[in-house]
């Protein structure tokens, strides 16, 4: 659904995006991570045909971003970093305005507006001036606007940045349900916990380049090594337990031990079985110590600071 090859953007002497490759199939969520100024927004703007790539190609929903910009934009819903709404309009007018620009019929616009406002908890504020909206409500309305024409591709820049925990959860659930409906979604975020929940693929961008691209587990493994697991027991251990040769014991405590494995899907059940065979009462088994945050910080610190020059 989104395919970018060697996507590059230069602003005079500044190289904002440097030869990015992306391949996001239908029904997947790609999370773009990176420090401020890494090139995430520029990438999104190129994918929406708002910025013209200096070189490279990209196809979004089957359309070329350079030669079919109107078709690309018609197929994409975008939540922009600055979602500045028209403060003297109400939500219905606002959504109807954007719906009409996407060529929706009056009936469809009204039906879809009401449905989405209801879904995002804004139905009661449908006829209030947008200038009276709170920051979180504006953010939600901007997200609704991005979805008004039911686009196959959603590009969301910081979708939950201004929201309270409840609203953030609502938006995350909405994104996950959209993924289930065969939407392709690109999310730019600094919220790594959110990225962990949402992402099928993660691309870490630094100084305009993708420094790591892959699934969550793959990224963690690349920067933090094999995943670690911790088993806690009901009683203090007498001697070291034997998890088998396929895993590596990382640490041992009075009533717990940690191990790492290259293949948790296969090895974790084996380890559990062995513990029980050794008569040890297992209370819990959980992955530990390898958050996306750790992997991300490891990744970005590998690239030195500086300014990109073309």
């Amino acid at each position: 659904m989104i395919l970018a090859e060697g996507l590059t953007k230069k602003f005079d002497d500044f190289l904002a995006v440097d030869g990015i490759h992306l391949d996001v199939p239908t029904g997947q969520v790609l999370t773009l991570l990176g420090p401020n100024g890494a090139g995430k927004t520029t990438t999104v703007r190129m994918l929406t045909s708002v910025l013209r790539p200096t070189s490279g190609t990209a196809r979004v929903a089957g359309f070329d971003v350079a030669t079919e910009p109107e078709r690309v934009r018609a197929s994409v819903g975008v939540l922009t970093e600055n979602h500045g709404l028209y403060r003297r309009m109400n939500a219905i007018e606002y959504l109807e305005f954007f719906g009409s620009l996407y060529g929706m019929s009056a009936g469809d616009r009204r039906k879809r507006s009401e449905l989405l406002l209801e879904q995002f908890g804004l139905a009661d504020a449908s006829y209030r001036r947008l200038g009276e909206y709170s920051k979180g409500m504006r953010q939600k309305l901007a997200l609704v606007r991005a979805m008004i024409h039911n686009p196959p591709v959603l590009l969301l820049d910081e979708p939950t940045s201004a929201m309270d925990p409840e609203s953030s959860r609502m938006v995350r659930d909405a994104i996950l349900s959209l993924r289930g409906n065969d939407r392709t979604i690109v999310v730019c975020t600094h919220n790594l916990a959110e990225a962990e929940v949402l992402a099928d693929q993660i691309a870490i961008i630094r100084r305009g380049r993708i420094i790591s691209y892959g699934g969550l587990a793959e990224i963690k493994r690349r920067f933090l090594g094999d995943p670690q697991f911790e088993i806690r027991f009901a009683a203090p251990l007498v001697g070291a337990p034997d998890p088998g040769e396929a895993v590596r014991v990382a640490a041992l405590g009075p009533d717990w031990f940690r191990y790492s494995t290259t293949d948790p899907n296969r090895q974790n059940p084996v380890v559990l079985r062995r513990m029980m065979e050794q008569g040890l009462a297992v209370v819990s088994l959980q992955e530990t110590g390898q958050s996306l945050e750790s992997a991300y910080l490891e990744a970005v610190n590998q690239v030195p600071d500086g300014v990109n020059h073309a």
Binding site: R71, V78, H83, G84, F98, L101, Y102
Partner: peptide, 17 residues
């Protein structure tokens, strides 16, 4: 003005020529 208020980008993202 729209640029300063941040409302221009959503407009630029529509299929308008």
């Amino acid at each position: 003005g729209e640029k300063e208020r941040g409302s221009i980008e959503p407009l630029l993202n529509t299929p308008l020529q």
